[in-house]
């Protein structure tokens, strides 16, 4: 098996419509509406995009949203700050579960 992730595959995203055009069309409409500037600017939205892309570790989204951030005039320093913020949430989300462990331990401990 060759590589699972190929950068050329990003441009093939539309092919996913083949197996279920209706759901794909609905997804795209929702996706585009979500990234249309509203109370948040386009710049803020692509920054959310790049942060989430790292949190969910999607190489396609990291590629696309890094470019989008640069095209919004941001630098690697901006992106790094956003990724740290996303990673801090990820780390914190793991860490808070230590309370679950504590609760579980308390429940069965003398």
């Amino acid at each position: 098996m060759a590589d699972y992730y190929n950068d050329e595959d990003l441009a093939r995203f539309g092919e996913i419509a083949k197996s279920n055009p209706d759901l794909f069309r609905k997804f795209m409409a929702w996706y585009e509406a979500s990234f249309t500037p509203g109370l948040l600017t386009k710049r803020e939205k692509v920054l959310v995009g790049v942060a989430v892309a790292h949190a969910v570790q999607c190489p396609y989204c990291i590629d696309a949203y890094t470019k989008a951030c640069l095209e919004e005039g941001m630098s690697m320093e901006h992106i790094a700050e956003a990724v740290h913020a996303a990673s801090a949430i990820r780390g914190g989300a793991s860490l808070i579960h230590a309370i679950q462990a504590q609760n579980a331990a308390d429940k069965i401990s003398l």
Binding site: T41, R43, L70, E71, E72, G73
Partner: peptide
């Protein structure tokens, strides 16, 4: 004069100016 630092397009002139 701003120009992008690589192979990508520039952001909106207005928002860049404020920044």
């Amino acid at each position: 004069v701003y120009n992008p630092g690589g192979a990508f397009l520039p952001a909106s002139q207005c928002s860049l100016e404020a920044e």
